[in-house]
Design a protein around this nucleic acid. Structure first.
Lengths: 213, 213
DNA sequence: GGAATGAACAGTTTATAAAACGCTCACTCT
DNA sequence: AGAGTGAGCGTTTTATAAACTGTTCATTCC
């Protein structure tokens, strides 16, 4: 699945196509243009990719890998509390989404067509994120910061909550700093909910709540 | 602004146009068709509405009024706790949005074009909802169920949180019952956050928290 | 014989001409 | 004099033909 498993020629094709996708958009790049960039015939492209859409899918898969690695880095960071990680997770996710879509309209178009044709891609992306989120929650639970029943279920709910700050269609409405402020308000609320659940689990009779700042 | 303030002829025009909007969609209904339905000329339509878009805007304004009245009814209901009202508010809002868009694609098209041309309409709708939401929060605060700093700010944040369950673009992904379940999970979390804030305000030393079920 | 080609096919996009549309206004009707 | 008309204006939508694109495969190349 990672880039390294690809044939050298496939990498070249992917690279040429990616460049055109970002520059001219998915719809405006043709297979023969990509072939020309690679000094080969159109027919030969199909020895390495089943279709144009599969090239786009691979392109997004690479993007996703970088995106997920970034978030995984936050999860694995030392010296940060699970609460801080949770906040940073969503702030980073938002910032990455904002940069990807608001600053680069062609990437937005590619996502639109790809997700229309291949809905699974979006689900895989969300699942990969939910995985990391669930790990943050599990660590927090083990460490006493959170009380989370089912980490994966809770991760889904957190994704629902943050949807407003991930959905590309909305980014035009508000500017980044306003949205960031609102997202922080949302995260305050989420963390308060966890604080309450943690307090409830602890029996609701102690003044100091473990893991509370 | 309400329907009653309209001229009798204007009401007739609005009614005929609305019927066509819902049946054939905004784009497929023509002014001359509406005029024919009303047994008048196209020119006469413009004595009552400045443009076709303004008819659509009035149509949506009526919809909004019904929608808001419904939510206001929840807010004003007797014998329900603010927490129950908060939950019912969002469940109803979701159900209404789901019916409006998922079950009636033509209404979806009308919203799309109207919001593209008249972004203010969406803001007014959101503001009207936020108003009611803020009142529920204020009542809850006065009654001891919630601790809410700024009701309007908090209302905004709750709207952000529920965005996933309001955004028309998403309704195709999951079915209503799955989304309802997830929304309930989100509301559980929100209510827990309020419980914690309430507990914090109360000094964090009492076992029983006022207003808690 | 595996790698690469490019003409050919079906489907889509684009270009453009024709039809239809939203809207105005000089006018008629009552 | 206020309500209503409808031909006419500029623009948008639609219909259709031409050009192009994604994909295949019989063939060529090394």
């Amino acid at each position: 699945m990672p880039l390294e498993q690809l044939d050298e020629t496939a990498k070249q094709i992917l690279s040429a196509a990616s460049r055109r996708f970002l520059h001219y958009g998915y719809g405006k790049t043709t297979m023969s243009e990509v072939a020309q960039d690679c000094n080969m015939s159109t027919g030969n492209l199909y020895r390495y990719f089943p279709s144009k859409l599969d090239i786009a899918e691979k392109f997004v898969a690479v993007l996703r890998l970088e995106h997920i690695e970034r978030l995984r880095g936050i999860m694995e960071a030392k010296g940060k509390s699970p609460k801080e990680k949770l906040r940073e997770f969503f702030l980073t996710k938002f910032r990455l989404a904002y940069e990807r879509f608001h600053d680069r309209p062609k990437a937005f178009e590619l996502s639109q067509t790809l997700l229309a044709e291949r809905p699974k891609v979006a689900l895989e992306w969300e699942n990969a994120e939910a995985q990391i989120l669930a790990e943050i929650l599990s660590h927090g639970e083990a460490e006493g910061s959170f009380t989370v029943g089912n980490p994966h279920e809770t991760a889904r709910i957190l994704q629902d909550i943050a949807f407003r700050f991930t959905s590309p269609a909305v980014f035009h409405e508000g500017e980044a700093d306003i949205l960031t402020k609102e997202l922080n308000g949302v995260l305050d609320l989420v963390l308060d909910a966890f604080a309450w659940r943690n307090y409830q689990r602890a029996g609701g009779h102690r003044r100091g709540v473990p893991g509370e700042l």
